[in-house]
Amino acid sequence: MNPLAEVIADMPDDATRGTLSDPAGWLDAHGDSLYRFALQRVRDPATAEDLVQETLLAAWHAKSKFAGKSAERTWLIAILKNKLIDHLRRSRREAPLPDADIADEVVDSMFAEHNGHWVRTPAAWSRPDDALEQAEFWKIFQACLEALPARHAQAFNLSEIDGLTTDELCKVLEAQPSNVWVMLHRARLRLRECLELRWFGLASENR
């Protein structure tokens, strides 16, 4: 389930019904939910507060378009999501991350040049669910995430955590779909390999 769907599923029934109220009413009824949704994605309270404000203003301007078919909070979250994408795109312009290299040697070296087969076949990971319960695993997981090239990591987080679609990723990263998919592929394969080298490959020796 994507995060947006989770937020909606978490809503109590009375929040999913009801008529369109005024902006102050939205703030009372949904302010905290919108704030949490934003805070989980921008990490900065002041920015998250600004996004809530922008969302409520935009909703007020667009309220004639609210069909009343979707729940009020669902509608507000959808607006917030667009505001978030705009925000991420703006901050990327202000502090651009280095462009993904055309070639990624780390990933290219995982496959044989002549036939594209794995150079080292991915190992069978023993009891991966057990790893999730171990503090030591999470240290390695974090180290592996931090080892990703910045732009790959950003694409990976936006896709896996925030559930952005390819179209939305293209907007935020200002890249073509094929480039977005290549970045995600590289991020996932690098992360996979890092975990295998630093955790799962050692499983038989350590545990």
């Binding site: 102050a24 309270p45 409520l56 203003l57």
Partner: peptide, 11 residues
């Protein structure tokens, strides 16, 4: 924050 946002909203 709540007060600030409320003040910025149209009535």
């Amino acid at each position: 924050a709540r007060r600030r946002i409320r003040d910025a909203l149209p009535r």
